[in-house]
């Protein structure tokens, strides 16, 4: 009986966590759209003038204004804008002359591929480094890891990308240069998922696969370094909290091996808070990829955004901002709700 009530209690807690997540996420989305709407419609001098040019007659100007729906009140315009966005209409890009939504769908997988490999590197190295630093607190190993992590907060991503290209591509020739694949491999595999590695593997074209990996590894590693810095710092601080607890001392007194104390007794409880940290750094990577993509001519959303910025292509700029912002918010809030569901204390 008691297990039954605690079970319904738990289901209720999960449902309320999910309900809260949906409401907060939707509200934040509306806030995001309010900001992009504000930037797009209110800040530029006059959106009508930018369309008709400054030599248009008053009649042409008024006609264009009505055609663009700008004669309506701001509130009505905003509601129309939200409706457009939810239908996937982000306007037309001036520079590519295609709809921004289809452009973004085309470039997004490239960013996803790079950020995913980046986070894999960041987690794969950052978590062990953080645990190691905590286990050797105060020693020179801890200090080195600390300075290494602080570098992740101080090095400009674009600069590290350039230096990486000079060292690993131009000098050592360990990796391939900018771009996604060598030019003669371009368009060889059919883009089914848009993820070059997956597409090549599906097509069984391993030459393209290895070439794509060769191109991907350096930008992903540099991107991974930044999440590594954050993940290692947080892992260290979580671990220190755990290792200071009394049950750890008890385990040590009982004669449990140090390895077991650290990885079983110490590490297990911090897996849940780590999920939030990993989620946050994954979202931050999507943002960090803007700079890295520019340096590596990587055809992802960051590159698309910067090209649009330089061409003053406002629809493309705001569309990219909206998509990156939405993914960022979604990952943030999702890791939040995951934490609440997985945290044993909420059971």
């Amino acid at each position: 009986m008691s297990t039954n009530t605690s079970k319904t209690h738990r289901v209720k807690a999960i449902l309320s966590a999910i309900g809260g997540f949906v409401i907060v996420t939707l509200l934040t989305f509306v806030g995001l759209m309010a900001i992009t709407f504000f930037i797009g419609r209110v800040i530029p001098i006059d959106p009508v003038l930018s369309v008709v040019g400054d030599r248009a007659t008053q009649e042409q100007y008024d006609a264009a204004k009505i055609a663009m729906g700008l004669d309506r009140s701001l509130m009505v315009q905003f509601i129309a804008y939200v409706g457009d966005v939810f239908q996937g209409d982000l306007g037309r890009s001036v520079s590519t002359n295609r709809s921004v939504a289809s452009d973004l769908a085309r470039v997004f997988p490239a960013t996803l591929e790079m950020a995913t490999l980046g986070i894999a590197i960041g987690v794969g190295l950052g978590v062990p480094l953080g645990v190691w630093a905590a286990a050797r607190k105060g020693t020179w190993i801890d200090q080195i890891i600390r300075v290494f992590a602080l570098l992740g907060y101080s090095v400009p991503a674009f600069w590290l990308g350039l230096v990486g290209l000079v060292v690993f591509y131009a000098t050592l020739d360990w990796v391939a240069g900018p771009g996604r694949v060598d030019i003669f491999y371009e368009g060889l595999v059919e883009p089914r998922t848009g993820l070059m590695l997956v597409d090549a593997a599906l097509a069984g074209d391993w030459q393209v696969f290895w070439n794509a990996l060769d191109h991907l590894i350096l930008p992903a590693a540099i991107l991974g370094f930044f999440s590594l810095a954050y993940i290692a710092r947080m892992t260290r601080s979580f671990m220190l909290d755990q290792l200071g607890q009394e049950y750890i001392t008890t385990a040590r007194v009982k004669g449990v091996s140090e390895w077991r104390v650290i990885w079983v007794h110490g590490f297990r409880p911090i897996r849940v808070p780590l999920i939030t940290v990993i989620g946050l750094s994954y979202a931050a990577l999507l943002e960090g990829s803007v700079m890295i993509e520019t340096v590596f001519s990587w055809p992802g959303i960051g590159n698309y955004l910067t090209v649009a910025l330089l061409n003053a292509d406002m629809n493309a700029v705001l569309g990219s901002t909206l998509v990156i912002g939405a993914v960022f918010i979604l990952i943030n809030k999702l890791s939040d709700v995951l934490y609440r569901i997985l945290d044993p204390r909420s059971r």
Partner: peptide, 20 residues
């Protein structure tokens, strides 16, 4: 309002503002 700004990517937001 603060939370909306806080849960948005800072660099992207700054880029969009500079663009405008």
């Amino acid at each position: 309002i603060t939370d909306v700004f806080l849960s948005m990517p800072k660099l992207i937001l700054a880029l969009a503002f500079v663009a405008a």
